[in-house]
Amino acid sequence: MTTIPTFNRSLLHPRYWPTWIGIGLLYLMVLLPYPLLYRLGTSLGRLSMRFMPRRVHIARRNLELCFPDKSSAEREALLIKNFESVGMGLFETGMGWFWPDWRVKRLFKVSGLENISLAHANKQGVLLIGLHFLSLELGARIFGIHNPGIGVYRPNDNKLLDWLQTWGRLRSNKSMLDRSDIKGMIRALKNGEIIWYAPDHDYGPKSSVFAPLFAMEQAATTAGTHMLVRLGKPAVIPFVPRRLPGGKGYELIIMPNEEHLPLESDVATATYMNKVLEQAILLAPDQYMWLHRRFKTRPPGQPSLY
Results as ranks from 00 to 15, higher is better:
residue 172 S to K: 09
residue 122 N to Y: 05
residue 12 L to Y: 08
residue 151 G to S: 12
residue 101 D to P: 10
residue 25 L to V: 05
residue 193 E to M: 07
residue 151 G to F: 11
residue 26 L to Q: 01
residue 161 L to T: 02
residue 147 N to T: 09
residue 39 R to N: 07
residue 247 G to D: 07
residue 134 L to V: 04
residue 51 F to R: 05
residue 85 S to I: 07
residue 167 W to D: 10
residue 227 M to Q: 07
residue 176 M to F: 10
residue 170 L to V: 06
residue 170 L to N: 11
residue 212 P to A: 05
residue 98 F to P: 05
residue 186 I to K: 03
residue 191 N to S: 14
residue 238 P to R: 04
residue 28 L to W: 13
residue 128 L to W: 11
residue 114 E to K: 01
residue 247 G to Y: 08
residue 201 H to W: 03
residue 183 K to A: 02
residue 38 Y to H: 15
residue 209 V to Y: 01
residue 40 L to G: 02
residue 272 Y to A: 13
residue 11 L to Y: 14
residue 155 P to D: 12
residue 126 V to H: 00
residue 241 P to W: 09
residue 306 Y to W: 10
residue 208 S to Q: 00
residue 155 P to L: 07
residue 220 A to P: 07
residue 91 F to P: 03
residue 263 L to H: 00
residue 159 K to H: 09
residue 46 R to F: 04
residue 194 I to Q: 10
residue 144 G to P: 11
residue 295 F to S: 08
residue 130 G to Q: 01
residue 91 F to E: 02
residue 241 P to Q: 11
residue 225 T to P: 01
residue 89 G to T: 08
residue 306 Y to R: 15
residue 118 L to N: 12
residue 147 N to R: 11
residue 275 K to P: 03
residue 92 E to Q: 11
residue 113 L to D: 13
residue 250 Y to V: 02
residue 149 G to H: 07
residue 256 P to I: 12
residue 139 G to R: 14
residue 52 M to Q: 14
residue 283 L to I: 06
residue 255 M to S: 12
residue 304 S to C: 13
residue 217 E to W: 08
